[in-house]
Write a protein that binds this DNA or RNA. Structure first.
Lengths: 230, 230
DNA sequence: TGTACATCAGTGAACGCGCGTTCACTGATGTAC
DNA sequence: TGTACATCAGTGAACGCGCGTTCACTGATGTAC
């Protein structure tokens, strides 16, 4: 067992971080499909086989980058959450933080929300970091609900069983109407971000910031949040 | 100039189609990043250099596949449009057709709506086919508007200039409130489809068809369409 | 209708490249006594 | 505190692979007269 205090242990942590940093740099420059162990090693002045002391395979390096990306996005969103007061404002602020992070880290965004990397399947360890933004949105709705400031969206009868199942899984203390709307809004948020990021808004939407804020404001209303709710 | 009737001309059309079919098959099996000219040629019993008689480069083959994918999706959506009566029903049906096509052609969907292929930029020829679904949604709103069955969504004052610009570009005969909501819904539709397709709904949404129909029904309402409108 | 020439699909070899991973090794750092 | 041994980061060569693209060529199909 290596102690956490030895120079060897410290070096290992540093080199691991350097590998991930360089990999992230290449990800940002070229995208996940072009991420290559050999190129990372080359840039770090190491021989490619040396990376195998740190990551058993290219896929494990990818997994580490995916987890870091979810965590980085999650942290941005959580920090934004602290800065706003009131559920509606928080909703907008968190959505705007997701968009901002995506624009600042396009390839990392593509890595986690774009097309799956061929031949790669994400292990279970990616699930908790992937849930952070969703949990934040649920938390906002919960605050509004407890404050009594949450309207109840419509829910067709044929969707009620599924809505109740999702509610039991995700937020048993919220009405099923709200949980259903939350899940839909969550997906729709990433539709807005993805379209802007991947170029579908090219020559269509120009004032994208304002457009986005309006659109996510409408999403908030769909969940039952109104601008005035405390 | 080759006549359209010669055996040579006919053969050229057939071989071009065979190349695209095989490329599509590999796309479906492996994804765009793994699409290889050599593999396509191999599978067709040709030598790889022979493909250069048909496509000047790998990127040109990709472009052809992208255009075909947009057209295939567009045709599915347009066919669905014909089958339903009334704007609200048409909206739901067209959205459901987009989802169906995506589930049936996941890698083609990823090719056109997923992360951009690294090192590839789509030429202008892809723009018109890419617009087909959007135009269809605009057409549905137009029908409802002319029939007088379209409510007017809210539009914040600070977004009005952008809304009017988009309206002039996309559908000058519709109210800016509606056009803005249409563009947002259009992006959000692909958020719903993408999340389902790329696995984000795994262990979250189970009755996906019903969930989707409800969510796009809500999108329709956001545009001003109601179930009863003729 | 027959012949001479032009067109062009497909061949096969080659160029130059980069990739992930394995393996036996060296030598420095850390550990136990 | 000093010595003997174990650990492990990093090396360098190699394996086996696939890729896009170019080029000079053969031979069949099509065209003009």
């Amino acid at each position: 067992m290596s102690t956490a205090h030895g120079a060897r242990a410290r070096a290992r942590i540093e080199v691991t971080a350097a590998i991930k940093d360089e990999a992230r740099r290449q990800l940002a420059a070229e995208g996940a499909a072009r991420l290559s162990l050999r190129a990372v090693a080359r840039e770090l002045g190491m021989v490619s086989s040396a990376l195998y002391r740190y990551f058993p395979s290219r896929d494990d390096l990818l997994t580490a980058l995916i987890i870091d990306a979810y965590d980085s996005l999650g942290e941005s969103a959580e920090a934004a959450h602290e800065e706003a007061a009131g559920p509606y404002e928080r909703w907008i602020t968190v959505c705007a933080a997701v968009r901002r992070w995506a624009l600042d880290h396009p390839h990392e965004y593509a890595l986690i929300y774009g097309s799956p990397v061929p031949g790669y399947t994400a292990p279970d360890a990616t699930v908790p970091p992937a849930a952070r933004v969703g949990l934040l949105l649920i938390g906002i709705a919960r605050d509004a609900h407890q404050g009594g400031g949450l309207a109840r969206p419509v829910l067709p009868a044929d969707l009620r069983p599924e809505a109740e199942r999702m509610t039991a899984d995700l937020a048993p203390d919220l009405p099923p109407e709200v949980v259903t709307a939350l899940v839909a809004s969550w997906a729709q948020l990433y539709g807005l971000v993805g379209f802007e990021l991947f170029g579908q808004f090219h020559r269509v939407v120009e004032d994208r910031e304002r457009f986005f804020r309006h659109a996510v404001g409408q999403l908030a209303r769909g969940v039952g949040l109104a601008p005035e709710s405390a």
